[in-house]
């Protein structure tokens, strides 16, 4: 009886691993050849695309005005630059008191894309040259490539949307750090299918 249970459990676990690897492998089917990511690295990369935000201060201070972008979506050098000029934060004033500014910069830098073992972080990093210091995630070559097939009318000219900066408006699981294509629902349009 015990042996049977062990067998069933083992089969289940193997099945899960295989399913997971198939699911992971299926994503980004157009990019299979452009990265040095073999079967194993795909298998062991984290399931979430990018580490979700767990810092309550970050959620409050940054997330009150806009989507609380995961630190793993930009390199540390970008976050440092941005946090050094919060008075002119994309033409808005986003000043923080000194202590909060230091604490949040530390959080962003420590969780930046540079060393993050998540697939979106790695791909964003891989798409940048050493000296690129983008201040907008939407300006990274990886982001541009992933969104270049979407017609203007669906985003920029979409009255319900207006820009690519509102991650969670279309990526329904963006807050959890998941940006899978299957989970895209464009406001006023619906599922995105290329």
């Amino acid at each position: 009886m015990k042996n049977m249970t062990t067998f069933i459990t083992a089969t289940g676990v193997i099945g899960l691993i295989l399913t997971a690897s198939l699911v992971m492998g299926d994503d980004d089917k157009y990019e299979r050849n452009e990265r040095d990511e073999g079967f194993l690295s795909q298998l062991f990369s984290k399931k979430t695309d990018v580490a979700p935000v767990k810092n309550a201060v970050y959620k409050e201070e940054c997330g009150s005005c806009h989507f609380a972008y995961q630190p793993g979506l930009l390199p540390a050098r970008s976050w440092k630059k941005m946090m050094g000029d919060l008075e002119n934060h994309f033409d808005e004033n986003a000043e923080l008191d000194k202590d909060t500014q230091i604490a949040l910069t530390k959080y962003l830098v420590e969780n930046a894309a540079d060393d993050a073992n998540y697939k979106r972080s790695r791909r964003i990093m891989n798409s940048l040259s050493k000296n690129d210091t983008p201040l907008r995630i939407t300006e990274t070559p990886y982001f541009i490539r992933k969104h270049d097939e979407i017609p203007k009318r669906m985003v920029q000219d979409n009255p319900k949307l207006g820009s690519f900066s509102k991650c969670a408006a279309c990526h329904v699981n963006a807050e959890k750090g998941s940006y899978e294509e299957d989970d895209v629902r464009i406001p006023g349009i619906g599922k995105w299918d290329d």
Binding site: S64, C65, H66, F67, F90, E92, G162, S165, K166, A169
Partner: peptide
């Protein structure tokens, strides 16, 4: 509603 980002306030 944030005039720029559309985020609810």
């Amino acid at each position: 509603k944030h005039v720029r980002t559309g985020k609810k306030i």
